[in-house]
Write a protein that binds this DNA or RNA. Structure first.
Length: 618
DNA sequence: GCCGTTTTCGGCCCGACTGTTTTCAGTCG
């Protein structure tokens, strides 16, 4: 769900000058999304609304800057036609879009904001605004108690009660849980429902299965006999963490969890107030339903269009011949894809970013899976970014190294903070020298068990200098250069800053380059294309930081990095034991970027890794 | 508004659940 309330951007549309290029995509993406919202309330042609939504999504995911493109290039982008291309060009040239301002003037921002209330769609909001004259949430709240709304068409007591109840959740609209919060909660639900004897198959689906960095709600799919569906639904809505039953049907139910569902069940912290949908289907439909429930919506639409063009229809029950109603496939995802003349698409790629075309060519080539096999957690053999008690970690060098060895890694690098990170107890030059000696000692002791490398997570200072002198850096095996301060620099400035850091002959990996914290800090917007080009030339790696707060590089950046020939590093940035489990989120992000193990330095053999590290010292 | 192995016009995915309805519209995913 998109967070609405466009007042801030309204001013931006009129006032923002052609700022820094890399922000154009983001700005236009938001403007198009807001235009879609307003058009929806105004009752515009729904395909027009969809076109604006699609343009917003496409621009949001694009790493190339639209400000530098001509009309022809723009129109070659899927979802951008003449109309959108003209708007983009106008915005890039003038820094504004008068059409958007004009449109926003037609509907009060408070009305658009009402779309955030669960259960309220454009039609209902339009009635509240046009027929009842309500212009914002406060007026709506007041009107709910007077009884006047019952006069409106389609408004009954229950609907008004539901609006009252859901009003509180409008604030949460657009708030998404981090994947590291959603995953344990999903696994808890799966574990609970698995215990029911009626449940034959169960799997979490939705954006969690696609490995997205944030999750809006949890989707669970169960295969069972039709007659058992009711009992499964009863068990589901009766679970201890359920605060509210939103819907309870024979094949589909939705609940909201307690605010403290994490704490109470020992599940997680931070996953409270999440919506969880459960769908129960017969085994014969499980594959089709899993596809339907995994999404993305855009990916599904594309598959359904393909089915129609082949004289079939695709829904959660199966792939069905239109004329005879004969079910062609449905039991497994593989058979449904195959019947569509497609190779099976890994869930992480199902975002309508060209994966259907890929699946088609793979199928033609006789492959069962679309594209090359994506990287898996078990491919990771080295951890190159960790912290110990020397700075702000919880482990000693030896504890950390042994834990890494236990996970089957052949190499671990100890990379504590540099001196600029005072609050993280960063190491002074002198302390680093001693620390290197301590690391070498442990390395010697653990010889044969695991290779322990001496490294540092060196701050990239605001001007691009590194936080240690070269004389010290050259003593290290691994240098992860990361930004920790000056995280609101202008794009051009931080691009120059990072390019300078990449030039250092001692840097091996650039760590979490935007410095974002998901849902908390926007972070930097450097010109990623320029960084990738420089990193590729130097042969150094760009990090996907696997911590679920960061996931930085994000999926789209990592995809562009691979396309630019840059090596990726997937590191946990572990400060404590549990952090090593975050590796899965980094791998999911890499999979969403289409990464294979060949793209990732952590998958190298001992010898290859050593050789690569040496090669970066040029 | 976008798009094109019938195309520059006429399509544009599909079903469950709810609430207000006497057969369906709205919302959601």
């Amino acid at each position: 769900m998109t967070h609405r309330g466009y007042a801030g951007f309204q001013t931006c549309v009129g006032r923002c000058k052609l700022g820094l290029m890399s922000q154009t995509n983001a700005k236009l993406s938001r403007i198009f999304q807001q235009m879609a919202d307003v058009l929806e309330v105004l009752g515009a042609n729904r395909f027009k609304v969809i076109a604006f939504q699609k343009a917003a999504r496409v621009l949001g995911e694009l790493t190339d800057d639209v400000a530098g493109m001509d009309s022809k290039e723009l129109r070659s982008i899927e979802g951008i036609g003449k109309g959108m291309a003209d708007r983009i060009e106008e915005f890039a040239e003038t820094g504004g879009l008068p059409e958007a301002i004009e449109l926003f003037d037609k509907v009060p921002p408070g009305v658009v904001k009402m779309l955030d209330i669960p259960g309220l769609g454009p039609k209902t909001v339009s009635i509240l605004w046009r027929d009842a004259g309500l212009e914002d949430m406060a007026q709506l709240t007041a009107a709910l108690d007077t009884g006047e709304l019952e006069e409106l068409p389609g408004f009954g007591k229950k609907k008004i009660e539901n609006i009252k109840k859901n009003l509180a959740f409008a604030e949460q609209a657009g708030k998404r849980a981090k994947i590291g919060e959603a995953m344990p909660l999903a696994l808890w639900f799966v574990e609970q429902l698995k215990q029911l004897k009626q449940v034959k198959q169960i799997q979490y689906a939705g954006s969690l299965r696609r490995g997205k960095e944030t999750i809006g709600d949890l989707d669970l799919l169960v295969a069972a006999n039709e007659k058992d569906a009711g009992a499964i639904m009863d068990a589901f809505v009766g679970l201890e963490v359920v605060a509210d039953v939103i819907a309870r049907g024979e094949t589909k139910s939705s609940i909201r969890t307690n605010e403290d569902s994490g704490g109470k069940s020992g599940v997680i912290s931070g996953g409270g107030g999440m919506q969880v949908d459960l769908r129960v289907v017969p085994t014969a439909s499980y594959g089709a339903a899993l596809m339907y429930f995994t999404g993305s919506k855009e990916h599904n639409v594309r598959l359904r269009e393909r089915a129609v063009s082949m004289g079939m229809k695709l829904n959660e029950w199966g792939l069905i011949k239109t004329d005879s109603e004969k079910v062609v496939a449905g039991k497994t995802e593989e058979e449904v894809f195959k019947a569509l003349k497609l190779a099976w698409v890994p869930p992480e790629l199902r975002e309508d970013r060209g994966e259907v075309a890929l699946a088609e060519s793979s199928h033609k080539a006789g492959d069962a899976i679309a594209g090359p096999p994506l990287i898996e957690v078990s491919d990771i053999k080295a951890e190159l970014h960790t912290h110990t008690t020397a700075s702000d970690g919880m482990w000693s060098i030896e504890e950390l190294a042994l834990a890494a060895a236990e996970r089957g890694f052949h190499t671990v690098a100890i990379t504590d903070h540099s001196k600029g990170q005072v609050q993280a107890n960063g190491l002074s030059d002198e302390r680093l020298e001693k620390h290197i000696v301590a690391i070498r000692k442990v390395a010697e002791k653990l010889k044969g068990k695991i290779i322990v490398l001496a490294g540092s997570e060196v701050d990239i200072l605001a001007d691009g200098r590194l936080d240690y002198p070269d004389s010290l850096l050259k003593e290290l095996d691994v240098v992860v250069a990361s930004p920790h301060a000056a995280l609101s620099q202008e794009p051009a400035k931080c691009t120059t800053r990072f390019l300078k850091a990449i030039e250092s002959p001692y840097v091996t990996i650039m760590g979490h380059p935007t410095g974002r914290l998901i849902g908390r800090r926007e972070g930097l917007s450097p010109d990623m294309g320029a960084l990738f080009k420089a990193a590729a030339e130097r042969g150094i790696a760009m990090e996907i930081n696997a911590n679920h707060w960061r996931l930085d590089l994000r999926d789209t950046h990592a995809k562009a990095a691979i396309a630019a020939g840059v090596k990726l590093a997937i590191n946990t940035d572990a400060h404590r034991l549990a952090n090593l489990d975050h590796l899965q989120y980094g791998v999911l992000t890499a999979r969403r970027a289409g990464a294979t193990k060949k793209n990732v330095v952590n998958c190298m053999t001992k010898a290859a890794l050593a050789k690569w590290l040496k090669s970066t010292r040029t």
